[in-house]
Design a protein around this nucleic acid. Sequence first.
DNA 1: GGGTGACTTTACACGGTGTCAACTTGACGG
DNA 2: CCGTCAAGTTGACACCGTGTAAAGTCACCC
Lengths: 200, 200
Amino acid sequence: MSLDAMSSDNPDTRTRILTATWTLLEAAAPGKPVRMADVAKAAGISRQAVYLHFPTRAELLSAVTRHVDEVKDIDSRLAASRAAPTGRARLDAFVQAWGDYIPEIQGMARALMAMRDTDAEARAAWDDRMAAVREGCAAAARALEQDGDLRADLDVTTATDLLTALLSVETWRQLREGCGWEQDAYVRCMQRLAAQALMG
Amino acid sequence: MSLDAMSSDNPDTRTRILTATWTLLEAAAPGKPVRMADVAKAAGISRQAVYLHFPTRAELLSAVTRHVDEVKDIDSRLAASRAAPTGRARLDAFVQAWGDYIPEIQGMARALMAMRDTDAEARAAWDDRMAAVREGCAAAARALEQDGDLRADLDVTTATDLLTALLSVETWRQLREGCGWEQDAYVRCMQRLAAQALMG
DNA sequence: GGGTGACTTTACACGGTGTCAACTTGACGG
DNA sequence: CCGTCAAGTTGACACCGTGTAAAGTCACCC
């Protein structure tokens, strides 16, 4: 094994596959799924070589989500919301941070959601990512509760459910792609809706 | 052709296929799509016979949606909302009627949504159904506007967009199946949210 | 009795995933 | 310089599900 390829797996080709898949996913027109052969061609290797690194399509997709999260560093994006002084400010910051993150992962999300119904692995990968978002929602809900700003008829769990549903990728897509909303219109609207839903 | 099978197409087997598909769709566990062979077996005919009536899977699914709408008669369900005296009452009635309709078409919706990304016909069938729902949303939004109850920062179109997104099947599924909400909790919550979102 | 329409059986092409085996190539260390 | 090991290559193939094609059966109706 060469000196520059010492970390666990061969990083070179592996990451080339990941970024190639990512690019294809973001560029892909709806209706034509990205195939293993496409990925291989884009990465400049044979189709079989892809299977050398990722046993199944679902595992590849799942790895891409992890890779993207790492590169785009969603954690640091949510730093602003964690630092907010009030629950309400935290909620607004979170809605904004997540809302602005969605467009960057939209292609991947679509591919994963399309596989969700037929592939347990894909479903797991997606659910895992969504669990992270839900955690952010829960943190915002807790902050509101500590301020005494949470609606009386909501507990933290229910509030989290609601916020997570409101901020789903499906809803984003429907409003932005189906109805042609601008991104900042979406964000402002969701900030208002979230505040009304949890504090109203 | 026998005397009892005179109306346009052979109705007997055709409707047996439709109802069989419907039943399977509602019963199907997520992750295992209903195949043409399954439909055939359930209808008690050969796989090819299904193709005798429906050229493609997408057309079958699309026909099932029409069939279900006919049988369940969504139109009459929305009668209550049309008859409501105020915009607000109309909104509540509509949310209730649609919210209670979703569970009955949920299996079909899942199948259609899964095909949406790969099949134009399926997408068209789904979009057509959703256009009908959107029309209901639009009617509610217009009623609110006439009462002068629509938020100042919303026009009817935007309000319709918002309401349609709020009442999406995806949101229903997430709350009911993902979070374990009861049906009436979902309906009451959505009634409140819709009112806040449009009149707030 | 012959025709017609609905259905059956068998067979097959296609596209995409995933598997397998045998071969090449390059870098490494003895 | 040789052996080996890892990473990739090529080509073939099994599996599944959709959709097509062709020939045969069966009932009913004129």
